[in-house]
Amino acid sequence: MFRALLSDARTWTYIVDALSTLVDEANFVAKPDGLSMRAMDPSHVAMVDFVLPSDAFDEYECDQETLLGVNLDEMKKIMRRARSGDTLEMIYEEAEKRLKLRLRGKTVRTFSIHLLDITAEELPEPSVEFKAFAIITADALQEAVKDAAVTSDHVKIVIQPDKVTFRAMGDLGEVVVEMGKDSEALLDIQASEESAATYTLNYLADMIKVAKAADTVKLQLSTDMPLRIDFNLPGGGRVSYFLAPRIEGE
C-alpha cells in the first residue's frame, strides 16, 4: 500500500515534466522513506536520479518497497489537468494494479492509470569525481542555455576558481555568458583546477525544465567528463541529471 499527498499538485507536474523528457517509461520506487526514480535515456547519454523523501510530502504512507512502472507521457497528460491550488493524492493498492491520482480543488477528480511491468535495466551507480562545482540560480542557467542555443547546438561549460562561463560557437558566431563572483547569479563556486567540457544543448534544454520547481542549481564537472546538475526542490527532494560530454572533433 502506498499513499502520498502533496499540497501543491504543480510540484509533481514539474517533476513529471522533467522526468518525461528523458524516458518514456520508468519505474518509480516507493519506499517507507520516500519516492525515487533512476532512469537512463535510450542512447545512454543522460541519466536522471530523482529523490523525494517522505517528509517532502504532506502525508506519506508506504509499508514496503513497491515498484510503480508508469508511462510518463500518460502521467504528464494527467498532470496537465492540475489547476493551481489543487492538491494531489497518489494512491496505489496492490489488488488493483493501478495508480490513482486524485486532484482535489473545487472538485475532486480521480485519474487511474495502469501500471506497467518494466524490467528495470541495471543502472550504474553514478560514481564520478568532480574537480569543480558552481551553484547558480536556476533562472540564470535557463537563460544561459537559451542564449547558447542562439548560435549552436552545443555549449562548452568552463568553471574557473572565480567564474563560470558558457561558450557556444556556431556558424553564425559566438555566444559567451559569464557569471563572475560579483554576479548575483553565482552563489558559490569552487575549482581545484580549471575544468571544461562540451555538452549537447538539446539535453540541457530538457533538463532545465525542472528549474521551474527549484531556486538554485549546482553544476559539477571535470574536464571532458560527465556533467552533474542538481536541482534541490523546495520542501526537500532533488532531481539530479548526469550528462555525458560530447566528444570534440578534430
Binding site: M40, D41, P42, S43, H44, V45, A46, M47, P124, E125, P126, S127, V128, T200, N202, Y203, D224, P226, F242, L243, A244, P245, R246, I247
Partner: peptide, 15 residues
C-alpha cells in the same frame, strides 16, 4: 537521430 545520432556524438556516461 535521437538514439543512434545522440549516442554517436557523446562519450559514455560512466565507467
Amino acid at each position: 537521430m535521437r538514439i543512434a545520432g545522440s549516442a554517436a556524438m557523446q562519450a559514455p556516461l560512466f565507467a
